[in-house]
C-alpha cells in the first residue's frame, strides 16, 4: 500500500507541474474564450450574454470574409506550393542530381531561423523604392520610375505576403521530405532500376506511396500553421493597406486590442480553432482514401 502511494505521489510530482501550467495557460483560456464568444464584453463589468450574435455578425462582415479568403489562399499556397516545391527540392537532393547537396540543403533551410518580424521588414525593404526588386525591374523593363504597386490592388495585395511565406517555409518541408526519403531502403530503388523501371515509374510506384503519411502530417502542419500566420503579415502590412491583406488572426487582434470588443474577438478566435479542426478532419478523409488506394 505504501509503495502504491509512493508511486502515485511520484507520478503526480513528475506530471503535475507541466500539466497544471498547461491547463492554466492554454486549456482554461480556451474554455474562457469559448464562453466569452457568446457575450458582449468591453473588458470591464459583467459580460452580457448575446447568444450567437457575434458569430452571425462575423459572417456578414465583408472584412471578415475577405480575411477568411486570404487565409484560405495562405493554406492553398502552403499545401499546393510549399509542399510540392519542398518535395521537388528534396527529391533532387536525395537522388544526388547535384554535387554539394549539404550546401544546398543548408542554404535553402536557412530562412526558417530568421524571425518572421525580421523577414517581414526585410522583404518590405526589398520591395521598397530603395530595394533590390525595383532595381532589378527598372533594368528589365527599362522604366527608370518603376515602383512596386501590388499593394494598391485589393485582390493582388495578398500576393507579396504569400510569396514571402513560400520563401520562409519551403525549406522546412524540404528537410522533412529528405529525412523520410532517406528511410526508403536504397536496395528497393536499385532493384527497380535493374528491372528497367523508369524514373517516373519509380516515383509513382515506390516514392509517392511511402510519402502519403508524411504529406498528411505536413498538410495538418500547413493548415494549423497558416491559420496562425500573424507575425509575418502583422509586421509586413499590419493587414493594410485598407485591410486588403488582413487575415483572421489580425482581424481578431484589431477587434480585441484596438476596439476592445473582447467578446467578439473571442468568437473570432474560436472560429480559428474550429476552422483548423474542420480542415484537418477534411484532409484526414482525403488521405484515408489515398492510403487505401495505395495499400
Amino acid at each position: 500500500m505504501k509503495t502504491k502511494n509512493l508511486k502515485g505521489a511520484s507520478f503526480a510530482a513528475l506530471v503535475l507541474p507541466a500539466t497544471l501550467l498547461y491547463l492554466a495557460v492554454i486549456v482554461v483560456p480556451v474554455a474562457v474564450s469559448f464562453f466569452l464568444g457568446f457575450t458582449e464584453w468591453k473588458g470591464f463589468g459583467a459580460p452580457r450574454f448575446v447568444g450567437l450574435a457575434n458569430y452571425l455578425r462575423m459572417f456578414k462582415d465583408p472584412i471578415f470574409l475577405h480575411s477568411l479568403r486570404n487565409n484560405l489562399l495562405i493554406i492553398a499556397v502552403s499545401v499546393l506550393g510549399q509542399i510540392p516545391l519542398g518535395f521537388v527540392l528534396a527529391y533532387m537532393l536525395y537522388r544526388k542530381l547535384v554535387k554539394g547537396t549539404k550546401f544546398f540543403e543548408a542554404m535553402i533551410f536557412l530562412p526558417i531561423t530568421v524571425s518572421p518580424i525580421v523577414v517581414a521588414i526585410l522583404w518590405n525593404m526589398v520591395l521598397s523604392p530603395v530595394g533590390i526588386f525595383p532595381w532589378i525591374m527598372r533594368r528589365i523593363t527599362g522604366n527608370p520610375d518603376y515602383v512596386f504597386r501590388f499593394f494598391e490592388d485589393r485582390n493582388l495585395a495578398i500576393l507579396p505576403p504569400l510569396f514571402v511565406l513560400l520563401w520562409m517555409f519551403t525549406g522546412l518541408y524540404m528537410i522533412m521530405f529528405i529525412a523520410n526519403l532517406q528511410r526508403i531502403p536504397r536496395s528497393v530503388i536499385e532493384a527497380a532500376v535493374i528491372d528497367g523501371a523508369s524514373e517516373p515509374v519509380i516515383l509513382r510506384k515506390i516514392i509517392f506511396p511511402s510519402m502519403v503519411g508524411l504529406i498528411f502530417t505536413m498538410t495538418i502542419f500547413a493548415i494549423s500553421g497558416s491559420l496562425k500566420s500573424f507575425d509575418l503579415i502583422f509586421a509586413m502590412t499590419g493587414g493594410g493597406p485598407a485591410r486588403y491583406t488582413e487575415v483572421i488572426a489580425i482581424y481578431m487582434y484589431s477587434n480585441t486590442f484596438v476596439y476592445y470588443n473582447y467578446g467578439y474577438g473571442s468568437a473570432v478566435s474560436i472560429v480559428i480553432v474550429a476552422l483548423s479542426v474542420v480542415l484537418i478532419a477534411l484532409s484526414r478523409g482525403i488521405f484515408k482514401r489515398l492510403e487505401d488506394k495505395y495499400e
Binding site: Y22, V27, P29, V30, S33, L227, K228, G265, I280
Partner: peptide, 13 residues
C-alpha cells in the same frame, strides 16, 4: 494542444 493557436488564448490570458 498542437492545434491550439496563440490567438485562441491571448484574450483571456
Amino acid at each position: 494542444g498542437l492545434l491550439i493557436t496563440v490567438h485562441a488564448v491571448v484574450v483571456p490570458l
